[in-house]
Design a protein around this nucleic acid. Structure first.
Lengths: 249, 249
DNA sequence: CGAGAAATTGAAGCCTCTCAAGCTATGTGG
DNA sequence: CCACATAGCTTGAGAGGCTTCAATTTCTCG
């Protein structure tokens, strides 16, 4: 993982607990806290955390083929993961919001199988994976959380693999985005899209023109109101209905 | 996991090493053997293994919503995993050959998110997941192998998610199948398809008619020779070429 | 041998893509 | 401050690949 702008920090563990608060967005802290681990165990976890960033729009966090040594939790901003096919066409694998983990698909090959780029200003928590795996042998709760996270990602990828209509895909994308924002305490109905229409198209396996047309159609039908990157869900119920075949709940 | 026909076995660990040979198809044994664990550690692993089966064609191994408590390695036969959408349409998630693991996507929810059915006579190695996770805390090699397996499956699902032509999908399906058979010591060029055309169609997100037409086209072009469920790859190089955009190597 | 499932083949239609042009916002330099 | 350049977005028209519907053939198995 490249660390173009690692901030100098004298001590990764601050006495005032700032670091712990910072990492409350990370899935791991939740796991550990909920397991009732003592302060020493939490220290162990936080010692292997590096806060890196900011990455600016367009900056790459890692590239396909880079040696894998760490996973990372998004603290702020949006990360896009993608691969390029033979013809240079971009295939977007996912968008990663604050609280979500990137790099899990790199474990098996010990190399990142995709590129990761910041869509806006991104802050990350970097976890050395070897250290984390070692720690997990002493913290069953952490191990279990890692298994859960990995298992989750298997299912996510299968979502958009079905042959759904462009409308269903778009609705599913918006509903999923909305849920993930809501889970982090953001508005569930007003979304700021940090990605371009082309990014969305490459993610949903549609042409950019189709994305444009679908958004227009959804707006004409009163399901959403969209202005540039700002999107409001006017009829969440009908959107969920549209997305149901894709999301399955 | 339902176990309709568990065979009675007096002692899961046979002195003559039969069990070890049996499980040589399981990814876990490889991991442990290659880590240089002592016999006691291997015993631990094999104590939590249950050999179950046979499951006959059409028999379900687990169903969507079933409580998750074990993953399983296929020892013999083919397992199809699938979900049903609202309209009853089957969406095939994958075909699992001997040596491959099923149930990894159930960890996060503690329930199986899909159905698993035997396409022919299937024998399984059942691993209690809680026990295995516990054992993994004492065997870092086993933990690493579990992480690798989970990570692998994340990437696999993304393969067919791209928008490829019917020919590319079919070629990728055949090439991947061929490689997996070859890895297990079977012929890489002569395949016996255990699944129906409709199964393949539901996996590749095509209409059954399209599968039929594509196979015919590939045969007319001299890439394959197909007779019912028997398929011979006549020009593996061109097939790989066709499949490259999907498989990426 | 006959019933039923699976597979094949043909014709028509539709959804999405491609290609091409125009539009809008942003930012830069004169 | 405005003209211009650029990237992103939108809109339209036409083409194409896959699906759907329907009918027929082939295979399997009791």
């Amino acid at each position: 993982m490249s660390t173009p702008s690692r901030r100098p920090r004298p001590n990764p563990i601050a006495d005032d607990g700032n670091e712990l608060r910072f990492c409350s967005t990370c899935a791991f802290s939740d796991a550990c806290l909920s397991q009732g681990y003592d302060k020493a165990a939490l220290m162990d976890l936080h010692v292997l955390v590096e806060h890196i960033g900011p990455f600016h729009e367009g900056e790459h966090i890692f590239r396909e083929g880079d040696e894998f040594n760490a996973i990372a939790a998004v603290r702020a901003g949006t990360v896009k993961t993608y691969v390029l096919d033979a013809s240079g066409q971009e295939q977007v694998l996912g968008f990663h919001l604050p609280g979500e983990i990137i790099g899990l698909n790199a474990i098996s090959e010990a190399r990142y199988p995709c590129n990761a780029v910041a869509l806006d200003t991104v802050m990350l928590c970097r976890f050395s994976f070897p250290k984390m795996a070692l720690l997990a042998t002493r913290m069953p709760g952490l191990q279990a959380q890692l298994f859960r996270l990995l298992s989750q990602d298997i299912g996510k990828a299968a979502l958009l693999a079905g042959d759904y209509s462009a409308d269903q895909r778009m609705a599913a994308f918006l509903v999923a985005l909305s849920r993930r924002f809501a889970q982090r305490g953001f508005s569930a109905t007003r979304l700021h899209l940090t990605m371009t229409r082309t990014d969305i198209a490459n993610y949903l396996r549609l042409a950019p023109e189709t994305v444009s047309r679908v958004l227009k159609r959804l707006q004409e039908d009163g399901l959403i109101r969209v202005d540039r990157r700002e999107l409001e869900m006017l009829d969440p119920a009908r959107l969920e209905e549209l997305a149901r075949p894709v999301l399955r709940h």
